[in-house]
């Protein structure tokens, strides 16, 4: 959460440097904020480490990689002419109760190549380095050529084109403490998506 506030502050300062264009950007924010972004978990909607390793014992570490079936997958549907900022807010542990926890390290990747299936999307996904919790990218990556013109301002009867990007969540669980109690350990990874303020 602290990380998101600092990014917003940076953007505000950067925009101030662009004298004369500040007001136009302000108007844009208001317009795009009315467009919805739809996040949809695919499959089980969970990052289940037992999918990678059925039997998990104390002392062991399980790593789910991007290529594994155990990755959690989300689709993001939103405006094609806007960049989006994805922020991952993951707990540092999976917990059974207050006295039993397992260290958790979450990574994520995104795919914005216009793939029609999650399988195709995974093959072209961009992995974020360990420790990164946020990324800004367009819903559809520009393949080549010049940058696209500015977004069409919203007006009566205009429906902005939309597209779908994919988010993959994976990571490492463990090592399971040697004194960890047997049971079902869980935690929630919150994924926040908004249009980037550029």
């Amino acid at each position: 959460m602290k990380r998101r506030i600092s990014i917003l502050f940076f953007l505000a300062v950067s925009s101030l440097l662009l004298t004369g264009k500040v007001m136009g950007q302000r108007v844009s924010f208001g317009l795009y904020a009315t467009e919805n972004i739809v996040l949809t978990p695919l499959g089980t909607g969970a990052l289940d480490f037992n999918t990678k390793q059925h039997i998990l014992l104390s002392g062991q570490t399980v790593t789910v990689n991007l290529a594994d079936d155990a990755t959690a997958i989300l689709t993001i549907t939103g405006r094609l002419d806007q960049e989006i900022t994805v922020t991952i807010d993951a707990p540092g542990t999976l917990d059974l109760n207050v006295s039993n926890s397992i260290p958790l390290s979450v990574k994520f990747a995104y795919s914005n190549t216009g793939a029609s299936t999650d399988v195709q999307a995974k093959l072209s996904a961009t992995e974020m380095a360990t420790g990164f919790t946020s990324a800004t990218f367009p819903i559809l990556r520009r393949a080549s050529g010049l940058p696209a013109p500015p977004p069409t301002p919203s007006h009566s009867g205009y429906v902005a084109p939309t597209g779908t990007a994919y988010i993959f969540l994976y990571g490492t669980l463990g090592a399971v403490p040697t004194n960890a109690a047997a049971g079902f350990y869980s935690g929630n990874i919150n994924v926040h998506v908004s249009y980037a303020k550029n």
Partner: peptide, 12 residues
């Protein structure tokens, strides 16, 4: 827009 993904594992 936000969504919550469950991370989970069963330890034996």
């Amino acid at each position: 827009t936000s969504v919550s993904i469950k991370a989970q594992a069963t330890v034996i």
